[in-house]
């Protein structure tokens, strides 16, 4: 693995390339219809969630099977605050992140304090997400049998509600771009290296003087904070929150599947993966229509395929290919 940690200056080519992509993404929605904007927005959202997951799973090496716990707590926090206490959803976005962070610290403290690793940590996360789903069902389903609807306010920036899809697109773009920037920042700092050291071998990292427990907690809290904010965005986008689409296992799988498909531990991977997933689920939805759960079937098949044939994701696969070509091509 190549590590750059003293801020290596990106070359001119890279800067121009990045600027072109940025301009393309900014003008893009004005050339597309509502449906395509929706697809791209969801691709970006799952890219964003995948990046947030990747911080804990890909960098710090703690695979979570239950990120729906954070996603759902985010969606519910801002929505309930808004409905019952009239809290502005922009403020709600922050409170959601905070709620996610606290939950992350709580779960992280328990799991890492008692040394849960690998599949056991993954399963514990799954259990926490399921517990929250059951609690949400128990407490909410009597009062809101069809899910909680956020009252319509029309086109209002102040209320985080828009008739057009374009503002949502830009918001999601800003969130994702911000997270990409944050990841690049962390990657070059001491924290990023500590995460990677923990991922490769946490006993060795501990022996080298890394406070493993503390850095695992940092990764967990940050990842949870970001994921929960994604939950609020999702709630404001659909203006409805219900247990299954907030805390369901399907969400946990969708969040981790993006990075896995694209490439765990990379920045481009989760975003690419998010788009691949969204594209696949739209295609199956259009082909097979009303059957709910078909996209989960596809996710399952994709998961199996990726693990067996592309354990390093698309990005990892490309890296290997490039290396091979370079080797034989001289």
């Amino acid at each position: 693995m190549e590590e750059t940690w003293e801020g290596k200056k990106p070359g001119l080519k890279k800067t121009v390339f990045g600027a072109l992509i940025a301009i393309a993404l900014i003008v893009l929605p004005h050339f597309l219809g509502d449906y395509l904007i929706h697809v791209i927005t969801m691709g970006l959202l799952f890219g964003y969630l995948g990046l947030a997951w990747n911080l804990l799973g890909g960098y710090a090496g703690q695979f979570s099977f239950g990120h729906a716990a954070f996603f759902g707590i985010g969606a519910y926090t801002s929505t309930l605050l808004q409905i019952h206490h009239g809290v502005n959803p922009w403020l709600g976005l922050f409170f959601s992140g905070l709620a996610g962070l606290l939950l992350g610290l709580f779960i992280g403290f328990l799991c890492f304090r008692y040394g849960l690793k690998g599949p056991y940590f993954a399963l514990a996360m799954l259990a926490f997400a399921e517990m929250l789903r059951l609690l949400a069902t128990q407490w909410m389903s009597l009062r809101y049998p069809l899910g909680i609807s956020i009252p319509l306010k029309g086109d209002s920036f102040a209320d985080f509600q828009f008739r057009s899809k374009i503002p949502y697109y830009y918001l999601c773009l800003i969130l994702t771009a911000g997270l990409v920037y944050l990841m690049r920042f962390i990657e070059r700092r001491k924290t990023g290296l500590y995460f990677k050291a923990i991922r490769e071998n946490d006993d060795a990292a501990e022996a080298m003087g890394v406070d493993v427990f503390r850095y695992k907690l940092i990764a967990m809290a940050l990842s949870a904070f970001l994921t929960a904010m994604g939950g609020t965005f999702y709630a404001q986008y659909y203006l409805i929150v219900e247990e299954e689409s907030a805390f369901g296992t399907g969400i946990s799988v969708a969040i981790l599947l993006g990075p896995l498909v694209g490439g765990v531990g990379t920045i481009g991977g989760p975003i690419l993966g998010g788009f691949v997933l969204e594209f696949l689920s739209e295609v199956t939805r259009n082909l097979l229509g009303a059957y709910s759960g078909v996209h989960l079937m596809i996710y399952g098949a994709l998961l199996v395929f990726v693990i067996i044939f592309m354990p390093n994701g698309i990005f990892g696969g490309i890296k290997v290919l490039v290396k091979k070509v370079c080797k034989y091509g001289g």
Binding site: L260, M297, I307, P311
Partner: peptide, 26 residues
């Protein structure tokens, strides 16, 4: 995947179960 990292093995069986369950649903 017998030699793969443990979490990948778990992900694989999770994928199998998602597939079978939702196929049954269909």
């Amino acid at each position: 995947v017998m030699g793969a990292p443990e979490h990948n093995q778990l992900l694989l069986t999770l994928g199998i179960s998602l597939f079978i369950e939702n196929l049954a649903l269909l």
